[in-house]
C-alpha cells in the first residue's frame, strides 16, 4: 500500500519535472543542436531532431516519450556542455555523497553530544549553555558560516583549500558548516525525547533498582528517544539537498549541487530536470527507508500493521 502510494506520487512528480521543459522558453531541439556544436542549424535539422524527440506530437505523447527515455537513463544532453545529463550528474555524485555522508555523521555526533550534556544536567547551567549555543547556532545560515570559515580558517591560517577538489581531506569544512545547523537542531529534539524518557516509569524502575544515571541515559532513555529521531534524519537527508547546493557553491565543491546552481544561472533545463529528478528519488527513498527502519526498530508499529 505504502509502495503503491509512493509509486503514484513518483509518477505525479515525474509529470511536474517533465513539465519544466515545455514551460520554459526556447526550443529544446534548437538548444540541443547548439549545445552539440551546431551553431547555426538548418531548419531541416531542427525539424529532424524534433521528430526524433517526439516534440512534434501532443503533450501527453511527449511526456510518455520523455518518461520512457528517462527510465532508461537518457535525460538528453546538457545545453551548456552538450554531454549527456546522466553522465554529467553521475560524474559528480561521489563528491556529493561523500559530503552528505560526512555531514550526516558529524550532525548525528553533534546532536548526540549536545543532547547528552543537556539531558545529564537538565535545567542547570550546562543545559542552559547548550540551549544558548543552539539558539545562536540555529540563527547562523550555513552559507554564512562557510563564508566566514573560508575567510578566517582557509585564507588567514592556510588550513584547507579555497577551491575544494572533492577529496576526503577537503570535505571537513563544508561538512562542518552543514552539520552544525542540523546538529544543534536535532540536539533539541533529542533532548526533549531524552527528558521525556527520563520521566517515564521504566527509568524510575531502573533508578529504583540502583542503575546509575549515566547508564539509564545510555541504556534506557536513548533507544526510546532515538525512534522519532530516526524518522527526522531520514527525511532530512532529502531535504538537505537544497542546502547542499548552496554550500557546494560556496566551497566550489565539485558536486551535483554546485553543478545545478550553474545550470540554473545558465537556464540549462535538462540538467535542472536531472537534478530535481535525482533529488526527488533520494528524498522518496530516504523517507521510505526511514519508515522501514522505524518499523523494524519499533515493535509497536509492526504489530499495528498486522
Amino acid at each position: 500500500m505504502r509502495l503503491l502510494h509512493t509509486l503514484l506520487t513518483l509518477v505525479g512528480a515525474s509529470i511536474l519535472i517533465w513539465a519544466l521543459l515545455p514551460l520554459a522558453p526556447g526550443d529544446p531541439a534548437l538548444r540541443t543542436l547548439e549545445a552539440l556544436g551546431n551553431d547555426n542549424p538548418r531548419p531541416a535539422e531542427v525539424e529532424a531532431l524534433r521528430r526524433e524527440l517526439n516534440l512534434d506530437r501532443s503533450l501527453p505523447a511527449q511526456y510518455l516519450s520523455w518518461l520512457s527515455r528517462a527510465v532508461r537513463g537518457d535525460l538528453s544532453v546538457s545545453w551548456q556542455s552538450g554531454r549527456p545529463v546522466t553522465a554529467e550528474i553521475g560524474k559528480r555524485l561521489p563528491a556529493t555523497f561523500l559530503l552528505a555522508a560526512v555531514t550526516l555523521l558529524l550532525a548525528v555526533g553533534i546532536a548526540l553530544l549536545l543532547a547528552f550534556i543537556s539531558a545529564a544536567f537538565p535545567h542547570r547551567w550546562p543545559d542552559g549553555a547548550v540551549r544558548f549555543v543552539a539558539q545562536l547556532g540555529a540563527s547562523v545560515p550555513a552559507f554564512l558560516l562557510g563564508l566566514l570559515l573560508i575567510q578566517f580558517v582557509v585564507i588567514r591560517y592556510g588550513v584547507g583549500r579555497v577551491i575544494a577538489d572533492g577529496s576526503v581531506g577537503d570535505v571537513w569544512l563544508p561538512a562542518a558548516c552543514l552539520a552544525f545547523g542540523r546538529g544543534v537542531e536535532w540536539a533539541q529534539l533529542l533532548r526533549i525525547g531524552l527528558l521525556e524518557a527520563l520521566s517515564a516509569r521504566y527509568t524510575l524502575t531502573a533508578r529504583a533498582r540502583g542503575a546509575r544515571r549515566r547508564r539509564i541515559l545510555a541504556r534506557f532513555a536513548l533507544p526510546n528517544a532515538m525512534l522519532p529521531f530516526f524518522a527526522v534524519i531520514g527525511m532530512s537527508i532529502g531535504a538537505m539537498l537544497g542546502s547542499v547546493a548552496i554550500i557546494e557553491s560556496v566551497f566550489s565543491w565539485p558536486g551535483v549541487g554546485s553543478f545545478a546552481v550553474t545550470a540554473i544561472t545558465a537556464r540549462d533545463l535538462p540538467v535542472i530536470q536531472g537534478f530535481v529528478l535525482f533529488s526527488t528519488l533520494i528524498f522518496v527513498i530516504c523517507s521510505l527507508l526511514a519508515d522501514v527502519a522505524s518499523a523494524i526498530l519499533d515493535p509497536r508499529l509492526r504489530e499495528g500493521e498486522e
Partner: peptide
C-alpha cells in the same frame, strides 16, 4: 511534498 522544497524552488527559478 515528495520533492525537497528547496530543490523545487531552485527548479522554479531555473525555469
Amino acid at each position: 511534498l515528495a520533492m525537497p522544497s528547496m530543490v523545487l524552488a531552485l527548479a522554479v527559478v531555473g525555469v
